[in-house]
Nucleic acid binder design. Structure first.
Length: 503
RNA sequence: GGUCCAUUCGUCUAUCGGUUAGGACGCCAGAUUUUCAUUCUGGAAAGAGGGGUUCGAUUCCCCUAUGGACUACCA
């Protein structure tokens, strides 16, 4: 049998930076589409002109490209179902609003926001629905002449969905199973506003998903309560409803509630893929990219927040994710955002990144500290210290001594490692080292060890003092790997300085 | 307040009626290391509570509790 081609959409609203939860929604859509050989569409839902933020659309596109989430069509990608910006689809929506009006599935309402507010204050739990609409100013209570007059005289109006009460509406959800809601608890949602000639989310969403032949609507759980409305809308148009999947939310790591834009900088981690500067306030929010995350790590981390492959595999590439992903394996409950685990993922991905690539990423960091070195030296240094870090920028803490000689010596290490006879030993070591011809790690080590043995010195005593002189602290990779990079001259210079300073 | 959704170690989760309830992050301990890390090994750590159904419930049903979402002429 021939199944319809899978088509999914990611439909953000350009009201600011793309939240990490939104990224996950995009990712799950992408994984599902690719697994099924389907298409992924980018649609921009900008029907609320008041909340439009310039630059947001570009930010969304750039973020997802950085992460490797690719679209087949949509804003910026072309396609045969455009335009893909809802603000450019006015005439289309108008046509369908009229259709609903003509068929009696919707009606025109003139109640002003002030009147509605008054009603809500007056009546507890006021809801514009079958039980109250007869008492309001709308095309159901007014004569058609009155309605025409009001419109002619420039009165603003909205179009509301006429929801028939007392009917069980079933939302089939791929993650949650059947969700049943009685239509009586639904209100007559506004579908269209005459003021800006634009539909609200609900109408635009259904019309676009239908026209764009979307087969699966994968979105956040916050949409579950309005899903019955959407089902009713499909029914009103006599269209087939797509499949639904409502994803659990990403929650704050501490306390309660869903992860919000504010949490990031409050808790000290990014909630945005890329750094974002709010054009209105000028506030800057940190991004994963600028914080040194590898896109693969972010993807892996996010994929496992709310889904898992069912085995114990934790590290998955994008293609493995595409292969193994399944909506039915998505969890139903919200996931607290665990930043520590995110760091661990990045650590793992740093390890699998080549030294050459890391060197390219590290060079700008070095430049910031005012140092430079030949590429092959940087590559060697990185090979020695990469397993110690979670982020590229941390490489500096682990490797700065390769490029900058210590000017002071860590007090604690000094107390422990620099003994009364250290200066004397280091002086002897200097002359041993100046006699070394081949300064390779192995050769230097052999000669120094022979000297230690000859004199019956304690290996640890010599080496620890030596390390302190070279590094300035009690840390670092194998000591003769360090001297090889430093070179004979610099090694001697550092020994000399250590003796001078610590005596 | 109303409606809906959810509930396994601190966190992310596995289990699709019978398990010593598994893995990962984090934490603790030990081993390795001339240092610091990495790494390795081990450890502590969970079925919200109460009723059912069943020979047997973490698993199915109900109630309660708790958490979350929604409740706009926002998405």
């Amino acid at each position: 049998m021939s199944e319809k081609k899978v088509r999914v959409r990611f439909a953000p609203s350009p009201t600011g930076a793309l939240h990490i939860g939104g990224v996950r929604t995009a990712l799950y859509n992408y994984l599902f589409a690719k697994q099924n050989g389907g298409d992924m569409i980018l649609r921009i839902e900008d029907t609320d002109s008041n909340r439009f933020v310039p630059g947001a659309e570009k930010y969304i596109i750039e973020s997802l490209e950085w992460l490797g989430i690719k679209f087949d069509e949509g804003v910026n990608y072309g396609g045969n179902y455009g335009p893909y910006r809802q603000s450019e689809r006015r005439e289309i929506y108008k046509k369908y609003v009229d259709q609903l009006l003509d068929s009696g599935k919707a009606y025109i309402a003139f109640d002003t926001p002030e009147e509605l507010d008054a009603k809500r204050n007056e009546i507890q739990n006021f809801q514009y629905d079958a039980s109250t609409r007869q008492g309001m100013r709308n095309s159901l209570t007014l004569s058609s002449e009155e309605v025409d007059d009001l419109i002619k005289n420039g009165h603003q109006y909205v179009v509301r969905m006429k929801i028939e009460p007392n009917e069980d509406v079933v939302v089939k959800d791929l993650i949650r199973g059947d969700v049943v809601i009685n239509s009586s608890i639904l209100d007559d949602k506004v579908l269209y506003k005459s003021a800006d000639q634009l539909p609200t989310y609900h109408l635009a969403n259904i019309v676009d998903d239908h026209l764009m032949e979307v087969t699966h609507v994968i979105r956040g759980e916050e949409w579950l309560p309005s899903a019955p409305l959407h089902v009713l809308l499909y029914r009103a148009f006599e269209w087939d409803s797509p499949e639904f999947a409502h994803l659990p939310l990403l929650l704050k790591p501490d306390g309660n509630g869903k992860l919000s834009k504010r949490d990031g900088d409050r808790l000290g981690f990014p909630v945005f893929p890329l750094e974002w500067k709010d054009p209105k306030t000028g506030d800057i929010s940190s991004g994963y990219r600028e914080s040194g995350y590898l896109p693969e790590a972010v993807i892996n981390f996010l994929a496992l927040l709310g889904w898992n492959p069912g085995n114990n595999q934790e590290l998955l590439s994008m293609s493995e994710l595409i292969h193994q992903f399944s909506l039915t394996n998505c969890s139903k409950s919200g996931a607290k955002f665990d930043y520590e685990k995110g760091k661990w993922f990045n650590h793992k991905y740093i390890q699998t990144t080549s030294n050459e690539e890391l060197a390219d990423m590290f060079e700008p960091v070095m430049a910031e500290h005012g140092v430079s070195a030949p590429k092959d030296t940087i590559v060697k240094v990185i090979s020695m210290v990469k397993d110690r870090v979670s982020f590229v920028k941390d490489l500096w803490d682990q490797a700065s001594f390769f490029f900058v000689a210590p000017t002071s010596y860590d007090e604690k290490t000094r107390k422990k490692r620099w003994k009364a006879d250290s200066a004397d030993m280091m002086t002897q070591l200097m002359s041993v080292i100046s006699g070394v011809e081949n300064f390779s790690s192995e050769n230097t080590e052999a000669i120094v060890k022979a000297w230690i043995e000859e004199n019956g010195y304690h290996l640890g005593n010599v080496m620890n003092a030596f390390r302190l002189a070279l590094v300035g602290e009690g840390k670092g990779p194998h000591i003769f790997d360090i001297t090889e990079i430093l070179g004979k001259e610099e090694t001697i210079r550092r020994l000399n300085n250590a003796i001078l300073v610590m005596g």
